[in-house]
């Protein structure tokens, strides 16, 4: 029996809304340690890795490890029926072919349950090696979203260059060229405006903006986002979900032939 009760139910809605355009169907893996998902987009250029720890749930029971294949589009439709402040409980029998979502209003005066058919999805699990990143930039998630959106109107690729002076996002296209530089400001009076750069050595990488833009759909989940980069390796775009875990994206770089 798998049963998980999430008081901040809208967190699940935000997670699914953040990934449903990148990945259409995926396996949610349940174990006693928590609720995870790992999936690549169809072109195998980007990867989503979700991890929600069991201790972040008000109640979490998983008698036997199980993998629940779901259509993320259908899951998003069901979660749209949950109230923003509803408590969400997921339930699935060990050998069942459905998963039930129960939504309870805070005043418990409205309870609804939706049953979603599970799918058989062959899971291709990738090993993500620990990487000694040359640079990790942490900036407000809204700032990252804005940079990706602004540069998308200029070109379809971005060069992200991290130096001790700051991190520069450059793009060029038919319209022209654009450079956006964000400097470290750990002294910003408001924490949510802080930008920090942990630099071991300067690094510059080129990426397709449409994926970075898609990752920014996770903005509602966290105040900040971290970009971790190393030469000729995928960038890790990391949204920490407070007290629960993280939603991470990896994107393969574009490399000169």
């Amino acid at each position: 029996m798998f049963e998980a009760r999430l008081v901040q139910g809208n967190l699940l809605k935000k997670v699914v809304d953040a990934v449903k355009d990148l990945v259409t169907d995926a396996n949610f893996d349940c174990s006693s340690s928590g609720f995870t998902l790992q999936a690549m987009d169809n072109s195998h250029v980007s990867l989503v890795s979700l991890s929600l720890r069991s201790d972040g749930f008000e109640h979490f029971r998983c008698d036997r490890n199980m993998s629940m294949g779901m259509s993320l589009g259908n899951l998003a439709k069901i979660l749209k029926c949950a109230g923003n402040d509803d408590i969400v409980t997921m339930k699935a029998a060990d050998d069942g072919d459905t998963v039930t979502f129960m939504f309870e209003s805070p005043k418990e005066d409205r309870v609804s349950d939706f049953e979603l058919k599970l799918m058989d999805i062959d899971s291709e699990h990738l090993g993500i090696p620990d990487t000694d990143y040359a640079a990790t930039v942490t900036l407000p998630a809204a700032e990252y979203q804005r940079i990706c959106r602004d540069l998308s109107s200029i070109g379809d690729t971005v060069v992200i260059s991290a130096t001790k002076d700051g991190v520069k996002f450059s793009s060029s296209g038919d319209v022209g060229t654009a450079n956006i530089t964000v400097r470290q400001n750990t002294t910003a009076d408001k924490k949510e405006e802080q930008v920090s750069i942990d630099l071991k050595e300067p690094v510059a990488l080129t990426f397709a903006l449409r994926y970075l833009n898609s990752f920014a759909k996770a903005t509602p989940l966290a105040s900040h986002v971290s970009l971790s980069m190393a030469r000729d390796l995928p960038v890790m775009v990391d949204y920490q979900i407070s007290d629960m875990g993280h939603l991470r994206f990896y994107l393969a770089p574009k490399i000169e032939d």
């Binding site: 690549m40 072109s43 195998h44 250029v45 980007s46 990867l47 291709e124 699990h125 990738l126 090993g127 993500i128 090696p129 690729t157 080129t206 397709a208 390796l233 995928p234 990896y250 393969a252 770089p253 574009k254 490399i255 000169e256 032939d257």
Partner: peptide
């Protein structure tokens, strides 16, 4: 022009 790589080149199937 830089070529788009794929994650399979960086992450191995487990």
């Amino acid at each position: 022009t830089p070529m788009q790589n794929h994650l399979d080149e960086f992450f191995a199937m487990v």
